[in-house]
Amino acid sequence: MTSLAVSVEGLKKAYKDHTVLNGVNFQVQRGSVFALLGSNGAGKTTAIKILTTLIQADEGKAEVCGIDVAKSPEQVREKISLTGQNIAVDEILTGRENLELVAKLRHLPDRKAITETSLKQFDLEEAGGKPLSTYSGGMKRRLDLAMTMLGSPELVFLDEPSVGLDPEARLALWDTIRKMAASGITIFLTTQYLEEAEALADQIAILHEGKIIVQGTLDELKNILPAKKNRIRRKTTVT
């Protein structure tokens, strides 16, 4: 088994005349938290869509859990799970019913037991029987993550999961992600926020204008990037 959860070489993607990814290279170690940091439009979501087999790259090679995403997309999908920017929950159902539905769709055994364990793990036991209309944004995001974790994926992709959350809900989400990482699952996180990458990630790669301009630990990035000219702004962008 390879030690890499993700390996990307020379990845390119364009939409008509607009180049989104222009020769992207990076690697993600198994069992780590990896943050892809960049401003809006940098290409983060496009990279995730390629790695999760939703779209195909124009050029380059990408492997997830040692599997070529272009040649064996179904095998890749068996290994991963994805939480997108939009919270994917059914507002009509209760939290418990949402989890039971996903467990059923994934053909998991002992669905009721798995559901109750998941509600407890994500601090949703008291809210489990309530409709989603009574949930806060942070609670809905935690439920979304709980649904993502069903079936014990090897690799979880989180595409800007804290967008739209208030500061308190964001901190609670970070704590949830830390617990997910502590279970040994590899987490691939995209974010606009340096403080989010700093709080969660073992490795950070900065995506700017379709290219990875630097990758390393936070301390390595601080040593590599000049303090004045290329400082990462705390909230959004690379300048």
Rank of each mutant, 00 (worst) to 15 (best):
E91D: 15
I92C: 08
G95Q: 07
R96L: 04
E97V: 10
L99H: 09
L99S: 09
E100R: 12
L101P: 06
A103Y: 07
A103C: 12
L105C: 11
L105A: 14
H107A: 15
H107S: 15
H107D: 13
L108C: 07
D110S: 08
K112I: 15
K112A: 15
K112G: 08
A113H: 11
I114M: 14
I114W: 14
E116M: 13
T117A: 12
T117L: 11
S118K: 05
L119E: 04
L119F: 01
K120T: 11
K120A: 13
K120Q: 14
Q121E: 11
F122D: 03
F122P: 01
E125W: 10
E125M: 12
A127Q: 09
G129V: 04
K130L: 15
K130Y: 13
P131Y: 03
T134N: 13
S136C: 02
G138H: 06
K140P: 06
R141A: 09
R142T: 00
A146P: 00
M147I: 04
S152L: 08
V156H: 11
V156L: 14
F157D: 09
D159P: 02
S162K: 03
S162W: 02
V163S: 06
D166K: 10
P167H: 02
E168F: 14
A169C: 11
R170L: 09
R170D: 05
A172Y: 11
A172C: 09
W174M: 02
D175L: 06
I177W: 00
K179W: 01
K179V: 07
A182G: 05
L189Q: 01
T191L: 07
T191D: 02
Q192Y: 07
Y193R: 09
Y193P: 03
L194N: 06
E196V: 04
A197R: 05
L200H: 06
A201N: 01
A201K: 05
I204R: 04
I206Y: 12
I206D: 11
H208E: 15
G210F: 03
G210W: 07
I213N: 06
G216V: 03
T217Y: 00
T217E: 00
D219Y: 05
E220Y: 01
E220F: 02
E220S: 05
E220T: 01
